Simulated assay, not measured.
Amino acid sequence: MAHATVEWTANLEGKFDRPALLRLIADEMRLRSDGVFPVGGIRVRAIRLDEYVIADGAEPRDAFINIDIKMGAGRPAEFRKAFFDQMFAAVRAELGDLFDREPLALSLYVEEAEGWKHNTIHQRLSRTA
């Protein structure tokens, strides 16, 4: 399991390639985790935030993109550090000059989660492999 939720402020509408960012995060988890994240458990979603306050609220251009990642417990600390350092760098590169064009805060938080799930996507993937 690796689920990513990308929150972004509405004032960034049309200023970055959201589908490309979501695909990048999914591809990072799928292609660069050396199988640590099972492909069938990867989820990436975006939530546009229409109501928010940033800093002192004085600058309407202030914006943020926050990425929250939940993953099952047990991944080694060394893996988490190396993988998410690299992912954060890839996300920053994907956003390119957005940091120069807009007052922008980017954050990435990772949480180990315990949960209950039922997923038949793994079966579909094993049949097509």
Rank of each mutant, 00 (worst) to 15 (best):
E7G: 01
S33M: 01
E13V: 09
L106S: 08
S126G: 00
N66W: 02
M71C: 13
H122V: 15
R80K: 15
L95M: 08
L22K: 02
K15W: 00
R30Y: 06
G74V: 05
P38Y: 09
A77P: 05
V110E: 11
A89Q: 14
N11W: 01
A26T: 06
R23V: 12
R61Q: 08
E78M: 07
H3Q: 13
V6M: 03
W116L: 14
R23A: 15
A20F: 13
F37I: 06
A77H: 08
F88L: 15
F37H: 07
A105V: 11
R61D: 13
E111H: 13
E59H: 11
L104W: 00
D27G: 07
Y109L: 12
G35V: 01
F79I: 10
D68I: 08
R124Q: 15
F84R: 08
F83K: 03
A73E: 13
G96Y: 06
L106H: 06
Y109H: 10
K15F: 01
R75N: 13
R101N: 00
F99C: 07
G35C: 07
A113W: 01
F64E: 06
L22G: 11
Q86F: 11
A113F: 03
I25D: 04
G96E: 05
A77N: 08
M87W: 09
A129Q: 11
L95A: 02
Y52I: 09
L95C: 11
A58N: 09
R80M: 15
P38M: 05
R30F: 05
V6P: 02
L24K: 07
V53D: 05
L31K: 12
D34L: 01
S33L: 03
G40A: 14
E59I: 12
V6C: 04
K81R: 14
